[in-house]
Every structure is written in structure tokens, then in C-alpha cells.
Design a protein around this nucleic acid. Structure first.
Lengths: 325, 325
DNA sequence: AAAGAAATGATTATCGCTTGTCATAAAGAC
DNA sequence: GTCTTTATGACAAGCGATAATCATTTCTTT
């Protein structure tokens, strides 16, 4: 592989000048630029990013830590983040914490060892102090981190409000809400708050059940859902915390012979691709994933560049009506 | 951040010795190991992987190039590859070529610039000569690459055979096959071969339609499918090249009021998570994604270690019966 | 006790690039 | 014609490891 030195020799310039051309630093003439360009092409030169990173003790890589890859929500998030990062000249180091604290810690270590420019954290099993030491910019998405650089969220509470209002408007009077993992706090808990608020205001009865970590990890909710529907047979409106759960509710309803949306209306959350592939299609709360990803990358970029960034950014959600209401 | 030097000072040893401890090289006493361990802990030392990579002119990162992230098949593949790579001490640099040659080229450059240990290629818009120059190990998954290091595939032909046999066994006599993108050659084309063979052998009539790149990229097949079902109204058995297409066929059937599986039987391909979320659930050809991912990473590892690796590895597929047959 | 193995020290080149310093020219401003 | 700006050369320190060389010292063996 050709090095800077080779390019310098080939172009008849010195490494200093060539480096200045590459980094757009100091005085450079158009002629020099041209000569460097030609030499680079001729030698098929690619700067060694590793050496660059070492020299600057920071790379152009973003560590992306997610608790799950196969989950439809994270798929969308990862896909958009990759794109946004690419647009801004960053690469993505993909880290799947599998929702395990030890793995998350390990990945954080890996990120620091690899001198990532920053971390985008969609996983949240690790306390802030772990980050305090390492001095890396961290942008969270839909996670709390007491003292993090910046947090991006959607308006979860509003999502809960929209769902409740819609179900009630549809005439449902016995609501059921399938929420987050018990004992783990995250912004998504606010969906429950919003939902609860509306139900209480409207004096509509509602039940609430929590989920378990193992269900989240394996994405298997069916058994639990069947049980819940058996336990609350009068349920006529259901608000669940993800499209995956909603899709599996449809499966359970199929088995229990509960017609949707005739006897039971369902509203999911996320508006992932999956929402358009079920029968009927899912009515759901749309999270602006594209925008959230874009903002997250921008925040990280700004923070790395030393700019002051907002600690919290909340984006609006909206109800997307399809076939389950 | 603490460096090797600091650890050396703290442990009362020299950098040479500490480096030898870290890399398990040469003679080292247990006492030295201990002292280094303690010093590392005390200083919260993490080796700078960037410096390491520069020194060895190769990193422990694998460049993973996919044409798509949101596609259910690639999701599973990415998830498994990440896990397998992690197990073997590799990191994943996630590259989404979006099925665009220029982007793929660019990502290949990025990979070389970042001195990846090797590339796992699930995308295939770039000719081999691009790789020839750079001298990087490349393992392909479900792609042809004339002169690549190693290729991992599933037995696509057998998949086609199984699908055809099943449909015919179910009594279908007017088959339709939705194949790959026209003009682009890939191992998945062999599914069509196997399917065709059986149909011809059994004298069962079948139609075949190709898809377009834009459909693949956007994952929107519905219009095309509706059209196809209108054009061939006597169709009673359908074999499509992915679960995404199968799921959208269900959507189309819903709109056209074609009962599945009563009047039309459908077999998909991949056996992604999605296959269990549709109504009815998809009968499909299972690709052993976990094993393919594991083998791909192993092959890359072996190849990087200088071992001789098989040029082609073909894994068996199997029919998974669910509700669409 | 002699010989070899085991363990470490001390030092340094190397990886490829960034960035700083200082010197030196040539071009343009006034 | 001086002064500044622009453009480059020449050189070298530094980023944080790896790994090689050579010199020592301590421990085993026989």
C-alpha cells in the first residue's frame, strides 16, 4: 500500500505539503492540489485511517450500542443511524449489548480502546459513572443517562395519550395496556403515564401488565398475551408498547378466535416496517425514527466539535391508523 | 488515558515486559503477570487498539458489507454475524451499500483505509478486480465472487425443489414463482432452477416473474404481486424468493379476497422472524442463518490466520410448514 | 560446577500520519 | 523598495503500541 511518503515523492512535494492538502490546512496552491490528486490516483493511495486516528487520538468511528438487533424498532434505528453517520463521514461500530450489563461494559471498553469519536447509546444497563471516567461524548436514544451529553427521545407520554384517546373514541371501555419491563426505568415508561392519565380523566377502566426481560430479549410475548386476554376477557381495547407485541397479539387473537378490530382494537408503538405486514395492518404510534437518528448523529458531531448541545431533545409522535382500530 | 508506559512504571517493569505479558509472547513469570494485572486495574488501563492496529497494520475489525439493513433476512444475518464476530474477538464495521456499486466501492475503500482484518460481503455489485488490488480476505455470503477467498451459501436449488414438491403434493397445479432481480446473477437464482426442474419433471404448469431492483431496495412488492395474481388468476401455488415477498403476497390476497391457504398456497424463503408474525404464518424454506454466520466468521478468521479455506461451503435448507400451505 | 533455560531490563526502530517550527522564496500591496 | 501574504521545503516530535536485539541475572539440571 502506498503511503503519504510515496505520494510526496510521486508528486514532487513534501509530506508536510501533501498532508496539508489532505487536511485542507494552511496555504495550498491549486497546482499543488492537482499534483497531489494525480499522484494519489496513480498510486491508488488511501490514507491509513488507523495512523490518522492514532495521531489525532480519535477516530471517525461512532460506537453504536443497542440492546437488540433483531427487534424491528432497532432495525429501523440502526439503518437510519448508519445512513446519517455515513453522510457525515462517520463509520458505525456495531455493538449488541444483548441487554446484558457486562456485555455493555465490555463494549464500552472496546469503544474507548478503539478511540471512537463518540457513542450512540440505545441500551441502558450501565450507570453514568462508567462513562464519567472515559471522557467520551455519549448521545442516548430513548434512554435515561443522568449526566450524559445529550438525550434524544420521542414524546412517549403523548404517544400514550393518543392511544388512549383513540381507543376510547372507538368506543372501547375495557382497556388493557402492555407496558415495559418491570423494574427497569426508561423514557418509554411515560407512555403508560399518558395512557393512564386519559383513562382516569375519561373514567374508563383499564388494566396494566408489565413484561419481563426474557420476553424482550427473545421477542416472545404470545403466551403471556394469551394469558392476559384470558384473564381479562372483557377487554375491548389494547395498547401495547411495540409493534412486535402488537403483531403477536394478533397471533394470540387468532388462536383465541377474537376478531380484530371488531371485538378487540389494538394499537401498537413504533410504526416499524412490520406494522404493514400483519393482517390486519397495525394501527400504531409512529416514532420519527429517521429524524431521531439524524438528530442523534448531529448532536454527537456537534458535541465532538466542542459545541454546546441541548441535553434533551423530544420529538413528536403521531397516530397512524390502519386496520386494528 | 493511561498508556503502556504508565503500566510499566506502575508495575515496576519495562514496556517490553508488559507488552510481552499482554501478548503472551516470550518468557513471562506468574509474578510479572500479576504485577501487570494489578497495575492495569489500578490505572484502569485499556490498550489502545488503534496503536496496536497501526503497529500490526491490521485491526481486529471485520468490515460487514450488506446491501440492505432493514430487510428481515439481513437483519438476522447481521445479528448472528455480530455475535459470532464478538465471540472471536472481532468487531463489526457496519457498511450498508444500499445495493449501489459506488457506495459499495467507497465502503471497500473505507474498510481498507481502516485496515480491517477482512470483509464479509453480502452485497455483490462490485467485480472481483476491485478486491484483487487490496489484498484483503473476503468471505461472501450468498453471493458469487469469481476469485474470492471463500463463499458461503445455502442449498438454494434444493430450496426450490422442496418448495415445488410441497406445492405439488398439496395438489397445486398452476404454480407461480416470483424470482430475483432480472439481470443480476446470484446464488439465489438457483432456487428457480430447482423449482423449474421439479415442475417440468412432474408436468405441472408454472409461470415465472422477475422482480426489479427498486422493489428490492424499497421492499415494496405489493402492486406487482396484485398485478401478477390478476394476470394469472388460476394460480393455486406460489413460491416466492423471500419472506418479505410472501408477507406482502398475503396482503395482496387479502385485498383480492383470495383465501390462503384454501385457494392459494404460498411458500416463502428465509424463515425470518417475520414468518411467524403474519396471518396465517408463513410456510417457508429455512436458511440456516446462524450456521452460515458462524461459518463465515470462522472462514475469515482461518483465512486471516493463513490457513487454507474451502472456496465454497453449501449448507442444507429445510421446509418449515406453517399456515400458508 | 558448568551449561543451558527462564525471566527481565534497556533501548530503539517501526507503523503512517499530524502538526509544529523555522527557513525560504515568490507574488502582491502600498 | 519595503512589507506582508502566500506557498512550500526541510525536519522532527509525537501518537501508543509491537517486536527485535543484546545484555543480564536467576534458576534448573545433570
Amino acid at each position: 500500500m502506498a503511503t503519504l511518503k510515496d505520494v510526496a515523492r510521486e508528486s514532487g512535494l513534501t509530506v508536510g505539503t501533501v498532508s496539508r492538502v489532505l487536511n485542507n490546512r494552511g496555504y495550498i496552491s491549486d497546482r499543488a492540489r492537482e499534483k497531489v490528486d494525480q499522484a494519489m490516483k496513480k498510486l491508488n493511495y488511501r490514507p491509513n485511517e488507523v495512523a490518522r486516528s492514532l495521531s489525532k487520538s480519535s477516530s471517525n468511528t461512532i460506537g453504536l450500542i443497542v440492546p437488540h438487533i433483531r427487534h424491528p424498532y432497532f432495525i429501523e434505528m440502526i439503518s437510519h443511524l448508519e445512513y446519517q453517520a455515513y453522510q457525515k463521514g462517520y463509520r458505525i461500530l456495531l455493538c449488541n449489548s444483548r441487554n446484558i450489563q457486562e456485555k455493555e461494559r465490555e463494549y464500552i471498553d472496546i469503544c474507548t480502546g478503539n478511540k471512537v469519536a463518540g457513542i450512540i447509546l440505545c441500551s441502558g444497563t450501565v450507570p453514568m459513572e462508567v462513562f464519567d471516567k472515559i471522557g467520551i461524548s455519549v448521545v442516548t436514544i430513548e434512554r435515561f443517562l443522568d449526566n450524559g451529553t445529550a438525550a434524544v427521545e420521542c414524546d412517549n407520554r403523548q404517544g400514550g395519550v393518543l392511544a388512549a384517546e383513540k381507543l376510547i373514541a372507538c368506543g372501547c371501555r375495557h382497556l388493557l395496556h402492555v407496558g415495559n419491563i418491570g423494574g427497569v426505568f426508561m423514557p418509554a415508561d411515560m407512555r403508560t403515564e399518558g395512557f393512564r392519565e386519559v383513562c382516569e380523566r375519561e373514567h374508563v377502566h383499564f388494566e396494566e401488565i408489565l413484561t419481563e426481560e426474557i420476553q424482550y430479549d427473545s421477542m416472545m410475548y404470545e403466551e403471556m398475551l394469551e394469558e392476559a386476554l384470558r384473564k381479562f376477557p372483557e377487554t375491548d381495547g389494547l395498547f401495547v408498547n411495540s409493534d412486535v407485541i402488537a403483531a403477536q397479539t394478533l397471533q394470540a387473537c387468532g388462536r383465541l378466535r377474537i376478531p380484530v378490530p371488531e371485538r378487540l382494537k389494538i394499537i401498537g408503538f413504533d410504526d416499524a416496517f412490520l406494522a404493514t405486514l400483519t393482517t390486519p395492518r397495525l394501527t400504531t404510534i409512529h416514532q420519527p425514527v429517521r429524524e431521531m437518528a439524524e438528530i442523534a448523529v448531529n448532536l454527537l458531531h456537534d458535541s465532538v466539535s466542542g459545541k454546546l448541545v441541548p441535553k434533551r431533545t423530544v420529538l413528536p409522535v403521531r397516530l397512524v391508523e390502519r386496520g386494528t382500530t
